[in-house]
């Protein structure tokens, strides 16, 4: 009888009816959880017993000298590289090691590569339109119409990345920095839960770096953002939590001040690179 009662309960939402937009389970805190991950290429351990936890809505900076395993770490999260051992979880429900790249991307992990690739002949607006999560088969694409909802979403992202005034300009005329922001905007159109951003300010001017810092700190909260960056000044300006990687594992973790006063960190990285500035 209780089964029939439960079926008759009109307020009940069955699991299969619940919206699937965000299936990521973050009730237990972290959105990304990497434990004891090791990757070895022919005996060389690019990642060595890495433990890393990213909380939902957090902005995390990852720093480390060349060869510390930053890019390999991103490759593992996006499914490009399979670790030799360890486990990687997205929320507490999705085991990323059992999924391929498109599956992981559709789950809501977006990655921005170092070199921006935007569609130069198309306007900024249309670049964002193409990036949007939508039915991407042929006939729906041919007959697609611009609805108010879609336009609002694009305008919202344009506002976020600060390119509203340039929305009808072809993306080819944008400066390097603006292209980077457009690329971040294209990721945002897919409503990711976790954004992986690889060296966002390489080649940018001071003002562009400031704008990028504002953009990334503004994104945190709605999305979790992981930034890999070399530029210490930039990291200092945005980071609340910093993770220092060295030889494939976590050397130190904490606020920028805690990390930069850690003697082992100073020795391997900051001492050489940022000594005078610190």
């Amino acid at each position: 009888m209780s089964l029939i009662d439960s079926l008759k309960d009109r307020d009940r939402v069955f699991d299969f009816m619940a919206p699937q937009a965000s299936p990521v389970d973050v009730r237990h805190g972290p959105i990304l959880y990497m434990e004891d991950v090791t990757v070895s290429f022919d005996g060389f351990k690019a990642i060595n017993n890495l433990n890393l936890t990213i909380d939902d809505g957090e902005l995390r900076c990852i720093i480390g000298p060349n060869g510390a395993g930053k890019t390999t770490m991103m490759d593992i999260i996006t499914g490009k590289t399979q670790p030799t051992q360890g486990s990687v979880w997205f929320g507490s429900r999705h085991n990323l090691l059992t999924m391929n790249e498109p599956e992981i991307a559709s789950l809501g992990i977006g990655r921005k590569f170092q070199k921006p690739t935007v569609f130069e002949a198309l306007s900024v607006f249309h670049n964002l339109e193409l990036a949007m999560a939508a039915d991407k088969r042929i006939l729906p694409t041919l007959t697609a119409r611009m609805t108010g909802e879609i336009r609002d979403r694009i305008e919202e992202v344009l506002e976020t990345i600060g390119l509203t005034a340039l929305r009808h300009q072809p993306a080819g005329i944008l400066s390097h920095g603006q292209k980077q922001w457009l690329e971040i905007g294209m990721l945002l159109m897919q409503r990711p839960r976790l954004l992986l951003v690889d060296e966002p300010v390489a080649g940018m001017t001071e003002q562009e770096m400031e704008r990028t810092a504002e953009l990334l700190t503004g994104l945190a909260g709605q999305q979790s953002v992981v930034v890999v960056e070399h530029d210490m000044g930039f990291v200092r300006s945005i980071a609340r939590q910093v993770t220092v990687l060295h030889q494939g594992s976590v050397l130190a973790e904490g606020t920028m001040d805690e990390v930069s006063s850690d003697p082992s960190v100073v020795e391997v990285y900051l001492g050489a690179d940022d000594g005078e500035a610190a």
Binding site: A105, T117, F119, A121, L122, H126, L130, K136, L142, M186
Partner: peptide
């Protein structure tokens, strides 16, 4: 149409278009 813009995107950066999920 949007399909035309996907075509232009394909013309200029085929791999990137594929990466956005278009066949």
């Amino acid at each position: 149409s949007k399909l035309g813009r996907v075509s232009v995107a394909t013309r200029d950066a085929e791999a990137r278009t594929r990466f956005l999920g278009y066949r």
